[in-house]
Design a protein around this nucleic acid. Structure first.
Lengths: 216, 216, 216, 216
DNA sequence: CATGAATGAGGGTTCATTCAT
DNA sequence: GATGAATGAACCCTCATTCAT
């Protein structure tokens, strides 16, 4: 529940369930936001149990609607997943877009990582899902597009003609940030501190890579 | 005694199925290697399509046996997976065992990474599977045991009272090696060269972590 | 709300399936009576062949629906059986309830048997099923509840401190009625006559038991 | 286990498992009696769980042999059941045979019941099985033959032209004895006392029937 | 906006049975 | 006298999806 950051931080102006704004919808469900609620529940369940093991029945039950209702809002099960991506991939797309218009300096690369760290924190559940369901996602239409995004992101910090080790360092920087998201849950410490430590290591890696690259 | 060999003492080393002895019996009873063949095919399909999306029918068909035959050799679908782990996790267990009896010097840590790099290469398909099916594996009995193993491995290279960044570096070292296995497929270059580059970066990270740690 | 009507409020009385309203819709959606029809067919087949030997495929086929349709109306195969009990056990529950509020006179006991005889005739198929599938039913959730009911019924006609033979007589009275239902099919004679003869013997047994009991 | 009287009381001269008579069969299983042991285990399991729910795997496992071994001794699963009947039905056949050669006096009928009571006690497990698996047995080849036996037994105590109630009394006498076997388990008291009480009630019923019959 | 009822395909699993060895 | 390996049929059940209302 708390993991679902889909619509911002927490649906700020939204009435918490069970406390309808005096004189509001009699049916207890806030109206019109069903689509949003489906996405929230779906993301939660997909992340928790995986895409395949989450059935539409389960989603519907948790929402107290019928399966058929889901089909009013989404054409297929995969469509729900796709919609999650479209909503959550945007921050990353914007980052890539931004990066593409910057000079390829070390400063830029570091800033990319900083922004990426933030973006990751914002879309954490989706990332957890991606990380843990690669086999599934790979087959889905959305898989290719996600992989593309990753490769393009790598390209923004990696020099194509750098030494192999330096290329690895850049890739490692990114994956350090990904891994940091879920492995560090088993390490003690303040989440924000951990995020910063991860970012520091990532920046370090990219810096080494950048410095090591001849002619930069 | 029991008809079901399900518990399995792994009749042999990890003999790849390979080609059937040229000119062998055209049909019926490819001898006593069926269990092995099931494991081979299963690992292949699990890694390729994921555990959930691989049906027993599919495995059976590819082996040209019936589904029921699988149940002669394994008690359940999950059992097949578990058996794969038992066979392939051993190298890692041995590594941890070895590491636990070494002094915690930088040299040892570097050697751990070197050996881990080799172990990973040996059990690559299983690792790819793990990496790509975490959501599934997490629920399975085998999930916990795998996570344990990872944490214990991290403990062999990480100093518990090191700075947070240095701890991250160690974790990063390991995950760099994991990521290296499948991300680098999209980078040009000789596989062995790539493996070495990955190893170098990982060793670098651990070295930095070790050096940075006060009092070491 | 929930799609599955499995818990079931028993939409109607024990309407026998009978003939479909002459000249009704030739196909698709015989309206809302499917649940009822499933129960009817299931009871018929369960009674005829036993619970285990009756497959859902068989039930579905006879109804010209798919197996999956059964699962829309009932959560499991056992659930179908349970629902049959809930529908058909009621007459007996009501009898016990009634008996519990009567004085424990001989007249009452005789009336219990009379009413039980009638109740049995009403739910004959279920009883036949129970009688013939005790081994199965015993394991099912419904088994215990049925046994309870029998014991409580026995308690309504049996004095706890009576002589052992008189206790046996009471039990015998009940089982005579049960046996009467299916053994007497092989004896010639009008069914109603036979029912009355059985009832007479049962009443006789209880009367002897009641008279023989000291202090009554 | 204790219910299995198949081979007498307890295989008297038989070595208890695990203590082989010095210099005996090295394989721990007493040799040659496998067929008997299959029957014992099968009867036990059939009576406990029902015929359908008892699988050959289960029987084999409990005997620590393979399913295939069962097929060496019996042609089919049903064959095991049939063999149980052949062994255990004999006492009843002998009783019928004996009864057929006696004068149809009240004394004879009472003696029939006495002997039947004893026979029932001897083959209790089989009877319990019959009672609880009628639906199954009915379809099996053995079903018809068992029913025949019951009808013939009834004929030995029932006058064909008696009043309907008196016929019922005779049937009731028999079924009282059957029911007595398993219903009385829930009544306190010494088993032998209970058996005698049941017998007394049965004799009573037959006596009434005999006396009530005009012209006897 | 949503439901009730249903479907077709497929899932994993278990069974009685066979047969070469 | 028994086993190891396999089969074919059937089982209960779940799924994503559809469509008239």
């Amino acid at each position: 529940m708390s993991e679902t950051t889909a619509d911002g931080e927490t649906p700020a102006g939204t009435t918490p369930v069970g406390v309808p704004p005096a004189g509001a919808a009699p049916k207890r469900h806030r109206r019109g936001d069903t689509r949003q609620r489906i996405q929230d529940v779906a993301l939660e369940l997909f992340a928790e149990q995986g895409y395949e093991k989450t059935s539409l029945r389960e989603i519907a039950e948790q929402l107290e609607v019928t399966k058929a209702a889901l089909y009013y809002h989404f054409k297929t099960k995969e469509d729900i997943l796709v919609s999650l991506f479209q909503d959550l991939q945007r921050p990353i797309d914007e980052l890539i877009e931004w990066a593409d218009h910057q000079p390829r300096t070390l400063d830029t690369k570091q800033e990319i990582l900083r922004r990426y760290s933030q973006a990751l924190a914002d879309v954490a559940p989706l990332f957890r899902f991606m990380q843990e369901n690669q086999a599934t996602v790979r087959e889905l239409s959305v898989g290719e597009s996600f992989k593309d995004r990753m490769l393009r992101l790598i390209d923004t910090i990696k020099e194509p003609d750098a030494a192999l080790t330096d290329q690895v360092r850049c890739i490692s920087a990114l994956f350090t940030m990904h891994a940091g998201m879920f492995v560090l849950r088993d390490v003690e410490g303040d989440p924000e501190d951990k995020r910063k430590a991860v970012l520091e290591v990532a920046i370090d890696l990219v810096t080494q890579a950048h410095t090591g690259t001849p002619g930069v």
